[in-house]
Design a binder for these strands. Structure first.
Lengths: 225, 225
DNA sequence: TCAATGTATTTTGTATACAATAGTTATCTT
DNA sequence: AAGATAACTATTGTATACAAAATACATTGA
């Protein structure tokens, strides 16, 4: 934990939430690495708060699957084995298909327009090679679909599942040779939604997730060595 | 909160976990009712611990969707509207089908035998009218299928989703006229798994969940009046 | 050298103290 | 009597203090 974690104190939020967001970001960005211990006193000192909000934030990170704690031993950033990732992706696959099929019925013209726009933004971003922006546009794209389900719990679960692979997915997005495939898959999803062709949408989404699965698992296999 | 909550101190667990389990049980059993406030000092006094483990347990209950907290206002037992329940069931439907289809491929002979046994136990229990036991046997039945997926995260999510409707589902189980349908559906699921007929299994599971959905939503509609 | 034991240190677990906010009641003003 | 305001109370938010457990390290004895 060499990076200097600092809090965004601007918000009028309980410290536990601020700490939670800070640690969450740090984990997703890879500043806090899998397996790294989350020591309360250390974090408290670094963030300039007491142990209390740190502890509560850790309980919240546990929820999200981003941390694991062993009683009387402490918490650490969740590690992911290839098996864990496969498990997550199996679930994500099913729920992403569900979301796609609901969205297919419920998406509005406006949302579809927004989706098209974001799709183009994504395509543009791949030309810049700005990995952070590419990732953001991709998140935005899928969020529109999630939102179109009108099911906040599903929305939440999916963004949660995405989070769990975020750290590994970034590597995938770095690799330029994946861009054409990603762009094509996005476009198929949009087409399918526009045509309200559920078969096409779910098939495209399935392929999209499975492609990520293969790539992300590859990344993990590298790391596990 | 008239009931006398008491802790199971037998286990060598951090108090937060003991408190969490205690409150969780109380919520699921309906001793703590939807909308009821979870006041730290009150709970601490009642359980004979300090506020610290209570607060951490509340953070954990939030995770599970069993409590909701408003900053500087406090926590309360999560309420469920019919829409919330429909949202949960939509997810459960997809994941139960996923679980069923994986189980169809992976379930062992021994597990299938266990499943058959539990199915009969369930059938027996319906004759006794002991609602608690009926519910337990039903949980056991589905847990065997969840376990057969070899996907602990999926297992966990499904039991979590089940929990969220547990309070309402009990009412459904009280109603004798549902027993024949339940028994038949269980038997179809088992048959399908034995024959490794994925179509049949997922169809049966889907029907099983949708039937519950209808009934549970009915219960909520009653309560919302 | 190695294992075992004891001791110091670090870290988590729990309780309590204090601060800040929200909610409630009583009082005052018109 | 109605509304505003002030004082009080209840409750959450945060920090700190103390206890217990785990860990690391050194010392001892074979």
């Amino acid at each position: 934990m060499t990076e200097d974690l600092t809090l965004n104190m601007n918000a009028y939020l309980p410290l536990r939430d601020v700490v939670f967001n800070t640690l969450r970001e740090a984990i997703l960005k890879g500043e806090l690495k899998p397996g790294e211990r989350l020591m309360e006193l250390q974090l408290a000192a670094k963030l300039g708060v007491s142990r209390t909000p740190i502890r509560e934030a850790i309980r919240m990170l546990e929820q999200e699957g981003l941390a694991v704690t062993i009683p009387r031993k402490g918490a650490e950033v969740a590690r992911m084995t290839e098996k864990d990732m496969e498990d997550v992706l199996q679930i994500r696959d099913a729920l992403d298909e569900l979301a796609a099929s609901i969205a297919c019925e419920q998406i509005t013209k406006e949302e579809l327009e927004e989706l098209r726009h974001t799709m183009h933004e994504f395509e543009e971003s791949t030309k810049t090679g700005d990995v952070k922006r590419i990732a953001e546009e991709d998140v935005k794209f899928h969020d529109i679909i999630y939102r179109a389900t009108r099911n906040p719990k599903l929305e939440n679960m999916l963004s949660n599942l995405r989070e769990q692979m975020y750290r590994y997915r970034v590597e995938y997005i770095k690799d330029e040779k994946n861009y054409p495939v990603l762009i094509k898959e996005h476009s198929q999803i949009v087409e399918g939604l526009a045509a309200k062709d559920m078969e096409m949408v779910t098939a495209a989404m399935h392929k999209h997730v499975r492609n990520q699965a293969t790539a992300v698992k590859e990344m993990i296999r590298e790391q596990e060595k």
